[in-house]
Each structure stands twice: as structure tokens, then as C-alpha cells.
């Protein structure tokens, strides 16, 4: 099979189409619930991002088919073994201008919606609730700074047992994506997340909301999201922060407004209790 100058038409065609199929599978795996693709978008920004990605994929696929269609046609037809004699042309200003201009236009078409989304993403003004997320080696600290729940503050740490990591115990369903204290927010409200860090860089990411923001020690950064639907959404720290970088997940629990109010009340009571026992202890 590996014949000399292995170039039989069939192998080339086979390989060409196989890889093309593989590549296009990317554009076709649009099944919204696929675990091999974006998690289902749960905010306006995430939805826009998702749509732009699909658009970009289709555009790339189209360019890919045109370019490699031409190239593989040439590979099949213009080969010495079929007795094809080489032409001798070596430039053409007209086609060069065309194939400079067309990609430029395509890029503008892709940049346009992206620009709008960027502007929207950066608009963190007038939030309903502001939460500060502080990265520590290796956990997150949350402080509710403004809005309903103001004053709540807690740490959120990986809750997967070490035994599961070491493999001495079966891994649970949310292996590495579960924490002791979830961040809780109400549905449909604009949540501004302020990030900072205590030691090294971290990054706060929840894919379903389309937010990712580095947490920089000594600096304040912010981002925002508005969740569409109640549910539990999981993400991870995405800036290398040392040994346990893989072990500081983020879990956001989105609740209906009344349930959220209830949660705030419970949380406040619990922390008051802690303060009381501390006072008694003194």
C-alpha cells in the first residue's frame, strides 16, 4: 500500500475527504446539548458569542472548501503521472488584488457583530448586585458588596474528596466541579462581578454566561452577566496559579427571586450566629 511515491488518486481523495469531514464535523456538531461543544448559552452575551462562533465556523468552512477544492482538483488533474505539462505563468495582478480584497471584506463582516458584543460586555454600569470574587491559592472568596444580599461573605472551596483524585474512590458526577459554598444569584438580574486576587493571578470563568475575567493581585477588574434560567452552572479557574490550579472550581447557583431572598435571609442568620458564638467565646 505504501507504494513508491505513494500518490495514487484514491489515497489522496480518501484522505482529503476524511479530513474535510473531520473538520466540518465541527460546524455540524451544532446539537446544542452536546458535551463536546459550548455549554448551552445562558445569557445574552453567551448567546451572541455562540452565534458569532457558529458564523465564523461556517465562513471558515466555506473558505476551506473553496481553497482546498481548487487545490485538490489541481492535485488530481495537474500531475506529472497523468502526463500533464506544466504551464509557466507566474503572476497576475488582478487575481492578487481580488484575493486580498475578498478576505478583507469577510473579516469586516466578522468583526462587525463582535464589536457590538465587546461594547456590551464592557458595560458594567448599573448592576443590580455587585459581588467581589477574590482568588486565593487555591479557593475563591466572595463578598456581596451591593444590592440584595449586601454584606454576605464566604469562601468557596473544592469539595471533591482527595480519595477520588487519587483514584481510591469512585469519581462522582461533578468530579472537580463541586464546591462547599456555591455563589448564589437571582435570575434575570444584572450581576456585576469584581475580580481581584490575594496572591497570584487567577481567572473567574463561567462558560454558560460567557464571562471570563482575570483576577489580578492588587488590581480591580470587573465583568457582568444576567442569567436567563435558574440552575447550577459550573466553571473553573483559568489562569495558571500553581499546584492546585486545576482544583479551584466556580459554581454559580441561579435562583428565582423569592428563593434568592430566602437564601440571603438564611445566610445572614447563619453569619449572625457565627458572630454571636464568637462574641460568647470571648
Amino acid at each position: 500500500m505504501w507504494g513508491e511515491y505513494m500518490s495514487s488518486k484514491s489515497v489522496m481523495t480518501l484522505l482529503g475527504s476524511a479530513t474535510l469531514a473531520l473538520y466540518s464535523s465541527m460546524a455540524f456538531s451544532l446539537d446544542e446539548t452536546s458535551k463536546y461543544f459550548h455549554p448551552q448559552p445562558q445569557s445574552v452575551i453567551a448567546q451572541e458569542t455562540y452565534d458569532q462562533h457558529i458564523l465564523a465556523l461556517w465562513i471558515c468552512l466555506a473558505i476551506f472548501i473553496v481553497v482546498f477544492g481548487v487545490m485538490f482538483y489541481s492535485i488530481l488533474k495537474h500531475r506529472k503521472s497523468t502526463g500533464y505539462k506544466a504551464a509557466n505563468f507566474h503572476h497576475s495582478t488582478v487575481v492578487e488584488i481580488i484575493w486580498t480584497a475578498i478576505p478583507l471584506l469577510i473579516l469586516i463582516a466578522m468583526a462587525f457583530p463582535a464589536t457590538k458584543t465587546v461594547v456590551a460586555m464592557k458595560d458594567t454600569s448599573e448592576p443590580d448586585i455587585t459581588i467581589k470574587a477574590t482568588g486565593y491559592q487555591w479557593m475563591w472568596g466572595y463578598d456581596y458588596l451591593q444590592g440584595e444580599g449586601e454584606g454576605i461573605s464566604f469562601f468557596s472551596k473544592l469539595s471533591t474528596p482527595v480519595a477520588q483524585v487519587k483514584g481510591t474512590e469512585a469519581k462522582g458526577e461533578n468530579y472537580l466541579l463541586e464546591v462547599d459554598n456555591n455563589v448564589v444569584v437571582p435570575v434575570g438580574k444584572k450581576i456585576r462581578v469584581i475580580t481581584t486576587a490575594n496572591d497570584v493571578l487567577h481567572a473567574w470563568w463561567v462558560p454558560a454566561f460567557g464571562v471570563k475575567q482575570d483576577a489580578i493581585p492588587g488590581f480591580i477588574r470587573d465583568t457582568w452577566f444576567t442569567a436567563n434560567k435558574p440552575g447550577v452552572y459550573r466553571g473553573q479557574c483559568v489562569e495558571l496559579c500553581g499546584k492546585d490550579h486545576g482544583y479551584m472550581p466556580i459554581v454559580v447557583e441561579v435562583m428565582e427571586a423569592d428563593k434568592y431572598t430566602q437564601w440571603v435571609a438564611d445566610k445572614k442568620k447563619a453569619s449572625a450566629a457565627v458572630v454571636n458564638t464568637a462574641a460568647v467565646g470571648n
Binding site: Y5, M6, S7, S74, I75, H78, A86
Partner: peptide, 9 residues
Amino acid sequence: MWRGSMTFE
């Protein structure tokens, strides 16, 4: 490559 006389070493 177009209208060349290609071989595939």
C-alpha cells in the same frame, strides 16, 4: 500548483 506538473515526493 495550479496547472503545474506535480509529483508527490
